[in-house]
Nucleic acid binder design. Structure first.
Lengths: 192, 192
DNA sequence: CGATTCTTTGAAAACAGTCAATCTGTGTGG
DNA sequence: CCACACAGATTGACTGTTTTCAAAGAATCG
């Protein structure tokens, strides 16, 4: 299970063998079954979580009780509630598994240790954060400027791997429309 | 003009006198008049920009030619197109001044120098980026879960200082609704 | 098979966008 | 100082989109 993570780190951050050992020393392997929670609202997010296998989601519950999905994560993605992780405040969101999954957890102090002692890792993580921010900006742009149909097509083309493995009502939730609306968008679209 | 920046850095990052000198050495003071551009679509964003005085906006133009505002910035905020700045790719957005403004620009290589040589500055900037990311996530949540009216009220309470100095049609653009809709939301709201 | 989860459909109501017109305040040039 | 232009805000009428609620079909899993 650590193997996948190792391959990933080797390719992305080009870690040495020694560095890899250091990473491994603080890595916690964990299996989560479908519908199981990795983080629940109100708890503090103490871990960085790398997805080895499976599919997770981060969502928040609105005032009316509706679930709103902020992110999906699949193999080789990171998944945590960064806000709670950074601030140490209780999380506003929940992370649960949409499939039986395998993840690697690294505790915050351990992770900080790694990034300060391994510059190449730090570098890579910084880049990752930067891209993640850019993605957020683009999603905001999408939300304020595109129609639901456009956002739907955008999602399909950008994340085909996610599109084909999560239920449609969750994609609707991610896009910010009701499942009925998404269903109608799809039927309109396929009648062309 | 540098004075304001100095006060800010002193308070936020607690820089020493020597460090402040180093910052000053690479700071470019610039005045921008209302409606003038700091960055135009297609250009690469080479600078970090700190707002000493005034008000700027970052916006993108949609396929139909409509302007969509991604961010506003006022005194003591940073304003740049982070995507272009990070990647070196041409910017998808424009930054212009909504009022006569004064900014301090720091070139990317210079800025990198500063953050690598001044750990406390680096630390502060990292925190800033983290908060900025969190804000993005919260805005996305808002976009996919709240009604236009709720987003409007949210904006007023979170950014009263911006609310009272930018035209309403720009707030509409930021919120992702037409100016007419915002106008109607307001009149409904005030008839209570 | 039965239960659950997921998707689709229909009809009514609420909501938002567009276009065109009007109203307001501001500031500039004569 | 006035008249005019201009940017901003509002309103009305109309159209189009999205939500909601209720119901019914598929698909999946134990």
């Amino acid at each position: 299970m650590f193997k996948t993570f190792e391959t990933y780190l080797k390719e992305k951050a080009d870690l040495t063998v020694d560095e890899m050992v250091a990473v491994r020393a603080v890595s916690i392997e964990k299996k989560i079954r479908k519908r199981q929670y990795l983080l629940q609202e109100g708890d503090v997010c103490h871990y960085n979580c790398f997805i080895v296998k499976g599919c997770l989601r981060l969502y928040r519950v609105g005032e009316d009780g509706t679930e709103h999905i902020l992110r999906f994560g699949v193999e080789n993605w990171w998944m945590s509630d960064r806000e709670s992780y950074n601030t140490g405040d209780p999380s506003k969101g929940n992370i649960d598994a949409l499939e039986n999954s395998e993840v690697i957890l690294i505790d915050k102090p351990d992770f900080n240790n790694l990034t300060t002692t391994i510059p190449r890792l730090n570098n890579f993580i910084e880049k990752l954060k930067a891209r993640s921010f850019d993605a957020s900006q683009n999603r905001i742009m999408s939300n304020i400027s595109r129609t639901a149909e456009e956002r739907y097509q955008e999602f399909m083309t950008f994340f085909p791997d996610i599109f084909y493995r999560v239920p449609l009502h969750m994609i609707a939730s991610y896009l910010g429309v009701s499942r009925e609306t998404l269903s109608r968008i799809r039927s309109q679209f396929s009648h062309k």
